[in-house]
Amino acid sequence: MVRLLQAGFIAISNRLAAAIAAALALFAVIRHWFLPLEPPSRRRSKKSIGDRPDQATRLAIDAVEKVFLRDFKWSFRRSSGSNNGIDARAEILDEGSPTGKLLALQIRPILPQKANAGDYIYRGESKHLDYWTKHSLPVYVVTVDPESGQVLWQRVEKRLCEMTETEWSIAIPPTNVLDASAKLCFDEAITSDPESLMRAVFALDRALMEEIQDQTTFFVWDEWVNTSSIFCNMRIYIGESQQEKPEVEIDYHLRAHRLYEVMSKLFPWATYSYAEPISEYSGVVAVHILEVELRPEASAYIEAEKFLEQGYPQEEEPLAPEPDDFVTEEEERAFWRRRGVSRGPQEKDD
């Protein structure tokens, strides 16, 4: 009887301990979400990343994001105020793991003008098309009808565009509806060679690269470690400031064995070191605080882009050195004066 009572007390104690541990873990997670770990204190920076989209564009981006996250099971990253006409990018995942394959999206909350052939006509700015084709970016235009919610897409290829001095237009078939059935069309069209993928990332991230150049920058990642590692809830703090709100937040949910696998695929232009030891909340969430810098190649890329955008250099032509026995006109006149002859250089061969 005593043994049974002892066993009962032990079982109750074990259950109580497990319940307390679970409650503490839940409390730690909740505390982490409401009071996330912050990077080291920094002075305030005057710089900011670009203009934010208006309300209608944000709602259109929300609608497109749902398709890529829910139906495609890809990641989706909004652009932070770049001037290249790209509003977001979708990144292909392989069972939750990053692949580096991406496509750029220009998203507009409009219903394009319908042509006689039944296609819709979308119009854009020439400067954006020039930038995309120059960098070989795989760009898709996506239109969202604010009233019906219909979402259409079309890949931007110069051969499909009609251009004027100020704008370009492209036909969008009414069958190009952005839903789960369109996933294969996007997947097959994206290049897979590393050089092209890296060129696309550099072109898309140029605004971010310029923003963090010569700035103290921290990337903060959360890692769920209770199952297979999932890296999520990324925050970017730029400049030496005291504000709690990050300049950039990206709601990634990426599977990887190491954070390096994620950083090297998504941000190949960056190098990083750990600013602080990895912090864990009850063995559930680990927080990685990285101090990030541009690679020398990324800085060179920015300078090369600026140089190319300025056009051909306008410089004074360098002068060739004169030979050692070269005689100037003044020296020749002095020679003839000494000989009592008034003779100019033009007469020396007479």
Rank of each mutant, 00 (worst) to 15 (best):
Ile172Lys: 00
Glu167Lys: 15
Val142Asp: 00
Trp168Tyr: 15
Lys158Met: 13
Thr175Ala: 11
Gly149Val: 03
Leu178Glu: 00
Glu157Thr: 15
Thr164Pro: 09
Trp168Asp: 03
Cys161Ser: 02
Val156Phe: 02
Asp145Pro: 05
Val151Ser: 06
Val144Asn: 05
Met163Gly: 04
Val151Thr: 11
Ser148Glu: 06
Ser148Thr: 15
Ser169Asn: 09
Ala171Glu: 12
Val141Thr: 07
Val151Trp: 01
Tyr140Thr: 02
Met163Cys: 14
Val141Ser: 06
Val177Gln: 09
Gly149Ile: 11
Ser148Tyr: 05
Glu165Thr: 13
Ile170Pro: 11
Val156Trp: 02
Glu157Arg: 15
Pro173Cys: 04
Gln150Tyr: 10
Ile172Asp: 00
Pro146Ile: 04
Val142His: 00
Pro146Met: 09
Thr164Ile: 10
Arg159Ser: 10
Asp145Gln: 08
Ser169Gly: 11
Met163Pro: 03
Ile170Arg: 03
Glu157Asn: 15
Glu162Gln: 11
Thr175Glu: 12
Val156Pro: 06
Val177Cys: 05
Tyr140Val: 06
Leu152Tyr: 01
Val156Gly: 04
Ala171Phe: 12
Asp145Thr: 01
Asp145Leu: 01
Pro174Cys: 09
Glu165His: 14
Trp153Ile: 00
Thr143Cys: 08
Leu152Pro: 01
Ser148Ile: 08
Ser169Lys: 13
Thr143Tyr: 07
Ser169Leu: 06
